[in-house]
Structure formats: C-alpha cells, structure tokens
C-alpha cells in the first residue's frame, strides 16, 4: 500500500489545559473517504482543525503526505489541502462570481456551481441567497480550489448541514468522485446517510477513538444512539 496522505500518531490536543483529543492514531490514504462521527463535544471539529494545521497539538504528530505538518508552510499546505469550516462565512456581500475569482480554478468552481443548480445566480450577492445556497457556494469553492484531486486532501466540517436532500446527495456523490480520482476526504457529520456513503467511519467520544471500520460494521443501533441521531 502507498504512503498515507494523512497520518496521526498519538495526537493529543488541549485547550486551556483541558484535553480535547486524546491519543488519536489515524491513517488516511489516497482514494479513501472517512466520516468522523460522534456526539456534540466529542472533538470532531478539533480533529479536523488540527489536521488543517489551524490549532497546535500538545503531544504526538501529524504527518501530511509524509511530512510533519509543523514543517509545512501554509502556502505549501494550501496546494494540496482544502478545508471547509462548519459555518463558513463571508464578511462582505460577495457575488457568487466573486467566489469563483477567489478560487485558483474558476472554471472548476463554475462546474460545481452548475451542479448545485446555482448557475443562474452567478451575479447574485450572497445576501440574496438562502442558507443552503450560501453553503453550496462555499462547498463549490472548497471543491474547486485544489484543481486535480489526485493525492489531494479535502477536510469538510459538517458539509451537509443546512442543505436540502438533493444537495446533500450531491455532496455524498462529490466525495465519492473525489476519492475515485485519488483524493483523501475526511468529513465530520451527524448525517447518517452521508456517513454511510463514506468508505470508513471513525467514532469519537470524549476526545478518544471508540471505533473505526466500514459503515456496515460501525453503524449499530447503540452507536446511532450515541452520536445523537434519531
């Protein structure tokens, strides 16, 4: 098997001396999609932010494409890692087209905008879009900034939150397409159909990995209760 695109060894993260993540070991390879599930406060977002190089870790190490994340500059990391926060915002009333110009690949951005059925709204400012449409614009940007997905990493924090059924299905399909094209995709989610569509599921609780495996092995009735899905 090739080297993992993401590797965590005994990763621990603390905030104000309180442990948020404890002893996380994880490997994600090219072509793999991993859904991170767990109850609120389990540390899902913290794990994703750590992997994006946004927060320091207290112990352990994170290697991205074989190199310690501490030795990778933000500019280099941005060439192969895309991150979508849980509640993406924009300080100003950009139009959808403006977002395309922020992407390094405006054509690819428009491709995703079209798949999210927003191609008639390229000139519309964000303030005239619904919450789900705004989320779709941020998703299109996250999907398009990396160009060719081969050996790239996509980190998505609750990507289907605020989306309707069709757009949520499109996100699941996009994750499948990215992994088939050679990317590694990690997403946190409370959306069980999205978790089921990923190749593997990792269950976090109180900052620790409880289980990791294929959706069929992982999604038992007890676990669904634990992650708070009804």
């Amino acid at each position: 098997m090739s080297n993992p695109l993401i590797q965590c060894r005994q990763l621990s993260v603390e905030q104000q001396s309180s442990p948020i993540l404890n002893d996380i070991n994880l490997e994600v390879f090219s072509g793999q999609s991993l859904a991170i599930v767990g109850p609120n406060g389990a540390g899902k977002t913290t794990l994703l932010r750590s992997l994006a190089g946004l927060i320091p870790h207290a112990r352990g190490e994170i290697n991205i494409r074989g190199k310690n994340i501490l030795n990778i500059s933000p500019k280099t990391l941005s060439e192969f890692l895309s991150y979508l926060p849980q509640n993406p915002t924009c300080a100003w009333d950009f139009t959808v087209r403006d977002f395309g110009e922020l992407s390094m690949h405006p054509d690819l951005f428009e491709h995703w905008i079209s798949r999210f059925k927003l191609n008639g709204k390229l000139g519309s400012p964000l303030s005239q879009l619904s919450g789900g449409e705004r989320k779709s614009v941020h998703l299109s940007l996250a999907f398009s900034v990396l160009g060719n997905p081969l050996q790239k990493i996509l980190l998505l924090d609750e990507p289907t939150a605020a989306l309707d059924h069709d757009r949520a299905l499109l996100v699941a399909l996009a994750i499948k397409e990215f992994t088939e094209a050679g990317a590694a995709v990690l997403c946190t989610t409370h959306d069980l159909p999205l978790a089921q569509s990923c190749k593997e599921i990792l269950v976090l609780d109180a900052g620790r990995v409880i289980k990791k495996g294929s959706p069929n092995d992982i999604l038992t009735a007890d676990l669904i209760k634990l992650i708070g899905n009804k």
């Binding site: 990391l77 941005s78 890692l81 991150y83 979508l84």
Partner: peptide, 17 residues
C-alpha cells in the same frame, strides 16, 4: 484581504500567512 473575508481559518488554509 479578499481571502481574509472568508475568515482567518479559511484564509490560512488558502495559504495566507
């Protein structure tokens, strides 16, 4: 500044110091 409009964390993952 345009990248920063999307928030500091997103701007950082877009390669901005």
């Amino acid at each position: 500044l345009d990248q920063l409009s999307l928030g500091e964390e997103v701007a950082q993952t877009r390669g901005l110091d």
